[in-house]
Amino acid sequence: MKAKSYILLAVFALFSTTSVMAGGPGDSPLATRAKTMTQQIAAKTHLNEGQYLKVKQLNLQMLTAVETLKKQRNMDTEAVDKQMAEIQDHYEWDLAAILWPRQMVAYREAKASMTAVNLR
């Protein structure tokens, strides 16, 4: 479970590494990160406008859940790992409902290649 949690964090960190300037005036840091992640996913999967908006909202929900989890200091490592795995599973499930099968394949390939590079 720990490895899955760290992989999730690595993937989201990679999708979030672009300049913070991607957000507009008044955007929260989470909204800016969600927008950046969505732009990177869109570049890999060729989202249409409707998908883009749904993925952006999903990214914001996921980032908010991760931030909320980080703030819960009274949880032990195993509980955090379990919650992080649930967040990841929920995210992947919802993303699969938004993307077409070929887009999901492109997303998984991009995620796998970025995760492999980042773990070194």
Score class of each variant (00 low, 15 high):
M84Y: 10
I98S: 11
R102F: 09
T18I: 11
G23P: 07
K111P: 01
P25A: 10
E78P: 01
A96K: 15
L60M: 04
L95D: 12
V66I: 14
N74G: 01
P25F: 12
F15W: 11
K54Q: 15
T64H: 00
K71D: 12
V11W: 08
R102E: 13
Q40F: 03
F12M: 12
A112Q: 14
A10S: 11
D27Y: 08
A79Q: 14
P101Q: 11
Q72F: 01
R102Q: 14
K70V: 05
V55M: 04
L14A: 08
S16P: 02
E86A: 15
T18N: 12
Q103K: 12
A96F: 04
P101F: 07
P25Q: 07
H90T: 15
T115Y: 02
T17Q: 10
M84G: 03
D81S: 12
L95T: 11
N74Q: 13
P25Y: 06
I41G: 02
D94A: 15
E78M: 08
M37V: 02
A110Q: 09
A112P: 00
K71N: 12
A106P: 03
A106K: 14
T64W: 00
L30N: 01
V11M: 04
K82H: 14
S19I: 04
L58M: 10
M62H: 06
K54E: 14
D89G: 05
A96W: 00
D27I: 04
D81W: 13
L53H: 09
L69E: 09
G23L: 07
K44D: 10
T68L: 07
Q39P: 00
M75D: 01
Y52E: 03
K56R: 14
Q40M: 15
